[in-house]
Design a protein around this nucleic acid. Structure first.
Lengths: 337, 337
DNA sequence: CTGAAAGCGCTTACAG
DNA sequence: CTGAAAGCGCTTACAG
């Protein structure tokens, strides 16, 4: 017999199919006599019976499956988030299905469709071109949470790092060192991540009374960071410290600085964001902001699980900010005289 | 109407449910009149109809889903493999479900069970404690391919980098530079990856007529590399070049060398394996072996798709080796005089 | 070219 | 405490 069904177990145990179903369900087990439960379990064990999740899902209208849209798993920022989600959702019996979108709107739509076909019970979106009106109606009926992204327009729950506070720490650190003119290599302003960090930077500099220069990169990538750095350095500024909107951008900046013979941190201080793996082993070790990715994943999972539990959608639209902290390493120092 | 079914589409189009099914299936569409197909498509479009993959899977006994076991997505070695798999499988309509196992045997078994419940049509195993006899019978009936691992005992297809040739390149490079005594910080010998590289190293050194020292680490991690390096340096050797079984190990070695004031590459040359992201930005940039991870993923997907197509299991047990090449950077140089 | 019917493997009122 | 029956949403022989 290839794959035994409940019927096979029922026959072997000498009970009805429905009894097998009850005996094997943790929540219905107690309805049966101990003896029956044991006979069924023995039979199931003997046959190597495995529940068919497809059949159950079809019947219960719940797939116990969560879909996740992520820009690119190859970007080390995301895997810890995925792990946090998987660990938490998994312990509640959910399976996570991750799809890469490369931040491409068409792929996002296609991935969403695919997951909707799979009858996922919920969504985790770490990627959002998804304009509020671009969101297929179908998704509005499915519990969803954004992670590392916010949507001002929609009433979706979200989990983001507390950028404002972390950026303030960055600026504080640099001004404490004596810097009076700072630059920000910002991420794309179409993304909340890019906007929030820039706004926070400008505000913090304003409050500290230091000059704030901004150069917007057109991606969160090393090449985009390098290009922005070129533009920045070609401008005539007194900048002695650069804060990049993420580590990849900072690496691009670092590359250009090396090419131009600018020493870090002697001539210029550099701060990243995210604390990617290995940035502590760079030369110099990168001062950056540690984002609690794993915890963000766990938190997103928690929000989602709660929404899944609720019939009403009263829990939708909550937004959680997790603290991120500056990690001071070797790429920052007092400005040159 | 929450989620329209085929019946709803049928009613709107004025045809039978079975006709809707045929009109929407790319392979059955041609059985129908153009006119009917169009009416059905229009109706489906109007209702925003989406196929229920659970129902289809239950009926067809194929979930169009592939399960993947991976030790840890957080290890940057794996995501490119996952992308290669996802891209290739996705274009054939399959959905990939990835589960982390942390190389823990119990978790591997649990993950396997879970995926079996989900009725996956195939497995990709990037993790194998899975002893040949430990493999649940169920998996033998499901097309499976190993990636980055081989199993001598089982007749499972596998895709691995061509370690032998790459390691030969490493040794060649070092001896060309003038090194006459080399060390290998090997990975755990329980894993084929660990064994193969060590064997290849010893053979290549033998052929080149240089001294070969081996220190086995008990994990493929930075700390394991550091510990192995401590042991190695405490031995009395003439070693002037170290080849680590992967980059993480190499980073552990590098850390210890720095602590002990040994300069790389002036005093000692160091070679890694895998070409992880950012190792080219280290100080010094790491000489390492570039493993074609993405292509390994694609290749594994191709093997799996072929096995899925075949009724007979005549295609099982093929093994593919993909070429890996040395990337020379700054961590290797001639030995000190 | 199209429809009516059976059935994939479950769960869950309903009845006893 | 347990069983018989209906039905989740599809696909696919079978019949016409």
């Amino acid at each position: 017999m290839a794959r035994p069904t409940m019927m096979d177990v029922a026959d072997l145990a000498g009970v009805a199919r429905s009894t097998v179903s009850r005996a094997l369900g943790p929540d219905t087990r107690h309805l049966l006599s101990q003896d029956t439960v044991q006979r069924v379990e023995a039979a199931a064990e003997e046959l190597g019976y495995r529940l068919n999740a497809l059949a159950r899902g079809l019947r219960t209208q719940r797939s116990a499956t969560i879909g996740m849209l992520v820009p690119d798993l190859t970007n080390p920022f995301f895997p810890p988030i995925v792990r946090g989600l998987e660990d938490t959702l998994g312990s509640e019996g959910y399976t996570l299905i991750v799809v890469n979108t490369d931040n491409d709107e068409a792929r996002e739509k296609a991935a969403l469709e695919k997951l909707l076909h799979q009858q996922v019970d919920g969504f985790v979106l770490a990627t959002v071109h998804l304009q509020p009106d671009g969101l297929p109606d179908a998704i509005r009926n499915v519990p969803s949470v954004l992670v590392n992204r916010r949507s001002d327009v929609d009433q979706l729950s979200s989990v983001v790092p507390h950028d404002e506070a972390a950026v303030r720490e960055v600026v504080q650190h640099l001004t404490d060192l004596g810097h009076r003119s700072l630059a920000h290599v910002a991420g794309p302003q179409a993304l909340s991540t890019g906007r929030d960090r820039r706004t926070a930077f400008e505000r913090a500099c304003g409050e500290a009374g230091v000059e704030a220069v901004v150069e917007v990169a057109d991606g969160f990538t090393v090449p985009a960071g390098a290009e922005a750095a070129e533009r920045l350095l070609d401008r005539d500024t007194d900048v002695t410290g650069i804060f990049a909107a993420n580590d990849l951008l900072a690496l691009g900046v670092l590359r250009v600085l090396r090419e131009r013979g600018v020493r870090v941190p002697e001539d210029l201080s550099l701060v990243g964001y995210n604390d990617m793996p290995l940035v502590e082993m760079l030369d110099p070790p990168l001062t950056t902001v540690k984002v609690p990715q794993y915890q963000m994943g766990r938190e997103a999972a928690r929000l989602l699980l709660e929404e899944l539990g609720e019939e009403a959608s009263s829990l939708r639209g909550r937004s959680v900010q997790l603290p991120s902290h500056l990690v001071v390493r070797g790429s920052t120092a007092p400005p040159p005289d």
